[in-house]
Each structure stands twice: as C-alpha cells, then as structure tokens.
Design a protein around this nucleic acid. Sequence first.
DNA 1: CGGGGGCTTGAGGCCACTCAACGATAGTGG
DNA 2: CCACTATCGTTGAGTGGCCTCAAGCCCCCG
Lengths: 221, 221
Amino acid sequence: MFTRTTTNLSSNSEPLANCGAARLYEFSYRKGAEIYGEKEPAEYIYRVKTGAVRTYKLLSDGRRQIGAFHLVGDIFGSTSGDSHRFTAEAVVDTTLLLMKRQRLEVLAKADATLTRDLLNVAAKSLRHAEDHLLLLGRKDALEKVATFLLEMDERINSTGAMTLPMTRHDIADYLGLSLETVCRSLTRLSRMGALSLTGDTTQRKITILDRKQLRSLDLER
Amino acid sequence: MFTRTTTNLSSNSEPLANCGAARLYEFSYRKGAEIYGEKEPAEYIYRVKTGAVRTYKLLSDGRRQIGAFHLVGDIFGSTSGDSHRFTAEAVVDTTLLLMKRQRLEVLAKADATLTRDLLNVAAKSLRHAEDHLLLLGRKDALEKVATFLLEMDERINSTGAMTLPMTRHDIADYLGLSLETVCRSLTRLSRMGALSLTGDTTQRKITILDRKQLRSLDLER
DNA sequence: CGGGGGCTTGAGGCCACTCAACGATAGTGG
DNA sequence: CCACTATCGTTGAGTGGCCTCAAGCCCCCG
C-alpha cells in the first residue's frame, strides 16, 4: 500500500511507505482497461497492489512503444509535469492504490524525507528509461529478449521461474521488435539451452536454465 | 549562468537561476574531453555556458548510444543517485558552470522553489528520454532524422538555419543508426526539398526549407 | 605534400519485418 | 453439448530497410 506495510522506513527500500497522513484510494481495473491517457492532467500517483500495468506512447499510424511495465509494488504516474506523457493500461486485472498528487506535494513541503522519496522515484524512472535507450538503440533481437528476461526475473522473484503477465505483443512493443521476432528469439534461446518454455497460451511459463548464457548476451559494461 | 543572468525567476523558464548563495565554478573542456565517466560519483551539477556536450553509454563491444545532447543553457548531471549512469564528453570546445550537488541539496532544504526546480530538471530529462524511447523503438531512419532536425532547430534558435556542433557519427549514435544511413537520410530529405545542405566538413550547415514536410514525418499524435 | 578526419555515395548482404497459415484454448450462444 | 469466434502463440516464406564494406572527395594540419 503506499502505506505502512514495512517496518523499514529507510527511504531507499520502500519510498512513500510512510504516508499515512495522505488519503489513499483503492481502485480496480479489468484487463485492458485504461488507467489514464496521454495528455490527461496528472492528478494521482499510483502504486500497484496486484496485477501489472503498461505505459506506452502511440504514433498516429498505430505503432506503439511501451516505456515500462509496472509490477506489484511499483510506483508510477509521477510525471513531474501537469499532464501525462504516456497512456497507462492494466495488463491483467489489476488493483491500484492512488494518492492525490497535490496532497502529496503539500505534505512534501513539510517533510524532507518525502521530498527525497519523490526525487528518488523520479530518478529511478529516469535510470530505467536511460537503460532502455541503449537497448532500443543498439541491441539486436536476441540481446533485447535476453535483457528483458533477466529484468523480469529480477523484478518478479529472481528464482528463474516466471509466469509473465504480458503478451508477446506487449513484449515486442516494449523491445521495439515485432511479436514474431520475440517468439523466434525465445525459441532460439530455448534451443540454445538458456531457458525452457512450458505451459499453454493462458499460462505462459518461462524458466531460466542458464543465467550465465543470458548474461553474456546482456553485455552492458 | 546557474546565476542571475535572468530577470525572470519563474522557475519554469530558468530553473536554478537564483542560486547566488551557492558557489559556482567555471571550467573549460577541449573538444572530445571527458567531463565525467560512467559509474563515477556524481559530485556536481553542470550548466553549459558555451559549446555542447554529449552523454552516452557503451556496450562492451564498443556500440554507443548517445542519450542526449546538451546545448547552451542546458543543465545536466542531475543524476539523483550517487553515481553517473552515462559518460559526458565535450562535443566541441566547451565551457561549463558547475555547482556542488551536496551544497545544492543543503540549499534545497531551506528553499522550496529550489527543490521544485530540481524536480523540474529531473522531469525534463525524463520527458526527453521517454520521447526518445519512441523514436528509437518505433521510427524509421527518415523519421528519426526529421525528428532530430526539428528538435535541434527548436533548441538552437528556431530559425531553420543551423550549424550543428556534432558529427554524423554522433547523430547516428543518438538516433540508433549508422552514420551512412544518417547521411543518406539527409541527402534524401534534401532531394525531397525539405532542407538544404551547405557548407563544408568543418561548417556543417543545414537549412530547413519545408518545416511542414518534416513535421509530417515526425508523426507523434 | 602526405596523412587523417569527416562526409558522401555505391554495392551487396543480413537481420528483422510483413504476410500467411496453423494449433491451442477460452468464451459465447444456439 | 457443440459449433463458432476471438485471442494468443508459433513457425515458414519472402521481402526490404538498414548495415557493412569500400572507395573517393574535401578540408585542415603537421
């Protein structure tokens, strides 16, 4: 919850955890539902309670670029500007906690820790975007998919076994590929022994078998 | 300067302009000189007084992705984290104004406007990065170059006539293309009548002749 | 004057794209 | 219960856009 789930209030591990003073709202979205649209005024900050969210931009001819996936615990919508630059949609059925921006800013005036938290949230988004620039601009398909799998594993549970909430189409639009290329890259990685693909359409399960091999494709220095 | 160049202190137009209280340093860099390296501790915030700066990431095999160009007046290095995520280099001979991060943070504690400025600077970087994601992931070569020219025109003087400080190679690494493709795209745009290329190697001058045509290639909705 | 850096253009190849077909599963309504 | 449809994933065939390699030009500088 934006709230006191945690005993550790050190601002790094759980930013905005100590905001009991602000009113919290909870809201549920069906799979595919829009949470906010590009250019809408940014009224709330959100935290994922259950489910997953994608934020994206569109070109006028329909090409889509997903900027980020937000998983359980993630905070998003912190556009430090008046209006959103992305559209946000529920990837699966999703519950969010939301908090009024304005209220948060008022609180931040009196609370230096909260201010720092807000800056940290912004900085984290920036870091992610910057890493993604390198991926989109300079990595080939196999490298993109390998990087994606390592990112998701780390963010879901780091066990190497994951059931992805998003479709191949979503992954493709996140990585700047076609969905067919995502498929082919996964099969290739599977054939290389780096991972195993099990489950059917509704339960896409991926298990990382050889993390080392994936890391060798994820060659940031 | 980070200083009082401006009479308008409204935080939107000239963030961090009112920091007379903080000590300012001035430093010059030769063309190609490194300003800071990836993973170095982030000690300063910078503002371009004259010249231009590129910030980039490298893959271990040498592929480079330029994240942003910083022109006169731009503020950069505001990694709200301990260390830099990019390397910064002077594109041409450059003079920077710098200010200690730590000092700035101390001042920000007492000054809500300054805090807001810092958030705004971070937000602006984020916005730029997010726009660039769309470009890198979903635009073709001609669209990338058209978008680039419109961005540069707007940031330099909006007159349609500009002398770019960066090389074709820099542009390529910014747009996720090869330098040859950048060349070919420029020639194509020139042949289409959208712009004119004049000057020699040392004075790369580009004049936009048909802004409408460029905009139709820059099809964000 | 020779060398190096930057820009342009051409030739050819490859990677990722499009188009297409097919299998599997879930949901819907007769 | 069973077509019927829609959605998602996988795989193949063929194409095309961008990359690589290469050559040549111009300008500056030692």
